[in-house]
Every structure is written in structure tokens, then in C-alpha cells.
């Protein structure tokens, strides 16, 4: 098991885990979003090849209404 933080919430998953698989588990696949891992952008093209490790911090963002 690894523990990662997604949008400020601690979550536990079975290893191995990558960004694509995580998005799948969160029901976010196919959504227009962007991912940051430990402060660095993970381009969409690298979601499937970016492994996640214990202690990783992710931000998953979308566009919302704003001024």
C-alpha cells in the first residue's frame, strides 16, 4: 500500500500505481483536467508512464466559472 495526497486529501492505494490508473480509480478518465505531481506538471502524454510513490502530493484541476 502507498499513501498519497490528492487535492489535499490523504488516500491509500495498492502499488504499483501511475497517474492514469489513479485518474481511472477516481472516475476522472476522459475529463478535461491537468495534473501536478509534487509541484511539477505531468503532461497528459506522460500520465500512463508516471509512477506514483508513497508520500506523493498531487493536484488535479479543472476549469470552472470565474472572473
Amino acid at each position: 500500500m502507498i499513501e498519497i495526497t490528492v487535492n489535499g486529501q490523504a488516500r491509500r492505494y495498492d502499488a504499483p500505481l501511475d497517474v492514469s490508473r489513479l485518474l481511472d480509480l477516481l472516475d476522472l478518465t476522459g475529463k478535461r483536467l491537468a495534473v501536478e505531481l509534487n509541484g511539477e506538471i505531468v503532461p497528459k502524454s506522460q500520465h500512463a508512464t508516471t509512477p506514483l510513490a508513497d508520500g506523493d502530493r498531487l493536484e488535479v484541476v479543472v476549469a470552472v466559472g470565474g472572473g
Binding site: N7, K31, V62, V64
Partner: peptide
């Protein structure tokens, strides 16, 4: 548009 954390668990 604003950029915000997605609501995890929201109906996709």
C-alpha cells in the same frame, strides 16, 4: 475561467 481542484467523487 478559473482553475480549481476537481471535486473527487462527483458524478462524472
Amino acid at each position: 475561467v478559473a482553475i480549481r481542484r476537481t471535486n473527487i467523487g462527483q458524478d462524472p
